[in-house]
C-alpha cells in the first residue's frame, strides 16, 4: 500500500507547486485566480476571514483530540479514568458563545459583499447575455453580437441574462461573479473589472450533454480598444479610424473570408471560374445558352448557384441566400468590377 500513497504525496507536492503561481497579482494565489474586479477583494476578504478562523479551530480540535487520546489512553489494568465533571455550564456557554460571535461577523461581511455584487449600479454599460445549450451569445447596446465577451476595464457593466432552454449559470472566477440564468425570467448581475486580460466564463449550472464545454473567453480591454472592437463588431466594414469601407473594400474583405477558395483573382481556374477580367463577359453554360455577367447574373448565381453553371465547372457552390446584406452584395459586385473586364 505504500507505493500509491508515496506517489500521491509526490503528486500533491507537484500539484501544489503548479497550483501556487509565482506572481499573485497576475496569476492568482493558492486558493484563488487573479482578482480582476472590484467585487473580488471583498469576496476574498470574507473567505480568508473564515479560512483563518477555521484553520485555528481545526488545529485546536485536532491537537486536543491527539493530546487526550494519548494523555488519557487506557492503561492496562486501570479501567477507570479519573473523576471529572459530567458537564460544565460556563465551558459550554463559552464554546457556544465564541463561535456564535465569530459567525455573526462571517454572516455580516458575507452579506455586505453579496449585496455589493447583487446590486447593479445605475447607468452601467448593459450587455445582454443569451445562454443556450451549449453556447453563449453577447449582445451589446450598438447591436453588436459576439460569442466571446469583451468588456471595457474600469467600467460598470451590467449583464441582463436570459436562457433559451434550461437553467444555466454565469460564472467568471476572476471576477467572483456568479448568477443563475433561469428560463422564463431575466436575471441580472454586474461587474466592474479592474485588470485587463483574458479570463474564462463557465456555465456552472448543469445543463445537459455538453455542459462542460459551455465556456466563453472574456477579454477585458482599455476603453479605446473596447470601443474599436464593439464598433467593428456591429459593423465589420470600418477601418482603423472608424471610417466606413468603400464598396470595393467590403467586397475584398468578403472575398477573403468566403470566396477565395473556389474563385481566383489571377485568372487561374480553381473550383469555379476566376473573377479576374470576368465582369461584362459572355458566359456559356452546359446547354449552350449564354448570358452577360452583370449585376443580375451575379446575384442570381450567389443566391441560386445551381441555376446557370458556367460550362466546364462542377455545380459545387452552395447558396448564400440570407448570408449577405444587400450592401455586402453590392460590395462584391464592386470588387469584381474592380478586377477588370
Amino acid at each position: 500500500m505504500n507505493l500509491p500513497i508515496l506517489s500521491t504525496l509526490a503528486n500533491l507536492v507537484q500539484a501544489a507547486q503548479v497550483a501556487v503561481p509565482s506572481d499573485p497579482t497576475a496569476e492568482g494565489t493558492f486558493w484563488f485566480p487573479v482578482q480582476a474586479s472590484t467585487l473580488a477583494p471583498k469576496s476574498d476578504w470574507t473567505f480568508y476571514y473564515i479560512y483563518w478562523i477555521s484553520a485555528f479551530f481545526t488545529a485546536l480540535i485536532v491537537a486536543a483530540m491527539i493530546f487526550m487520546a494519548i494523555r488519557y489512553r487506557y492503561r492496562k489494568g486501570v479501567w477507570d479514568g479519573e473523576e471529572s465533571p459530567g458537564h460544565g455550564l460556563a465551558l459550554e456557554l463559552t464554546w457556544s458563545g465564541i463561535p456564535f460571535l465569530l459567525t455573526i461577523a462571517m454572516w455580516y461581511t458575507g452579506f455586505k459583499s453579496y449585496m455589493y455584487g447583487d446590486t447593479p449600479p445605475p447607468n452601467g454599460y448593459e450587455i445582454q447575455v443569451k445562454a443556450r445549450q451549449w453556447n453563449w451569445e453577447f449582445i451589446y447596446p450598438n447591436g453588436a453580437k459576439s460569442t466571446e465577451l469583451h468588456l471595457p476595464v474600469e467600467q460598470d457593466v451590467t449583464f441582463v441574462m436570459s436562457s433559451a432552454d434550461v437553467l444555466h449559470s454565469f460564472w467568471i472566477p476572476a471576477f467572483r461573479v456568479k448568477k443563475d440564468i433561469v428560463p422564463g425570467r431575466y436575471t441580472k448581475t454586474w461587474v466592474h473589472s479592474t485588470l485587463e486580460g483574458q479570463y474564462t466564463l463557465f456555465c456552472t449550472e448543469y445543463c445537459g450533454k455538453d455542459h462542460s464545454q459551455m465556456m466563453a473567453q472574456v477579454f477585458v480591454e482599455d476603453q479605446a480598444t473596447f470601443d474599436g472592437w464593439v464598433a467593428k463588431q456591429a459593423n465589420p466594414y470600418l477601418d482603423e479610424d472608424g471610417q466606413p469601407f468603400t464598396p470595393v473594400a467590403i467586397g475584398e474583405k468578403i472575398y477573403g473570408q468566403h470566396c477565395f477558395a473556389c474563385h481566383s483573382i489571377d485568372g487561374s481556374a480553381v473550383v469555379g471560374p476566376s473573377w479576374k477580367g470576368s465582369w461584362g463577359t459572355e458566359r456559356t453554360f452546359e446547354n449552350g445558352d449564354t448570358r452577360l455577367f452583370d449585376e443580375n447574373y451575379f446575384k442570381e448565381s450567389l443566391l441560386d448557384p445551381g441555376a446557370q453553371v458556367v460550362k466546364g465547372f462542377p455545380p459545387a457552390m452552395t447558396s448564400y441566400r440570407g448570408v449577405f446584406k444587400d450592401s455586402e452584395i453590392d460590395g462584391l459586385i464592386a470588387y469584381i468590377k474592380s478586377l477588370g473586364n
Binding site: I53, T58, T109, G110, P173
Partner: peptide, 21 residues
Amino acid sequence: TVGGLTGMFLGSMGTDVHLHD
C-alpha cells in the same frame, strides 16, 4: 470539523456566490 467549517464559506452569502456549484 472540516466539513462543518467549510460549510461556513457557503453559508456566508458573499463567498457562496463564488464557490457555489
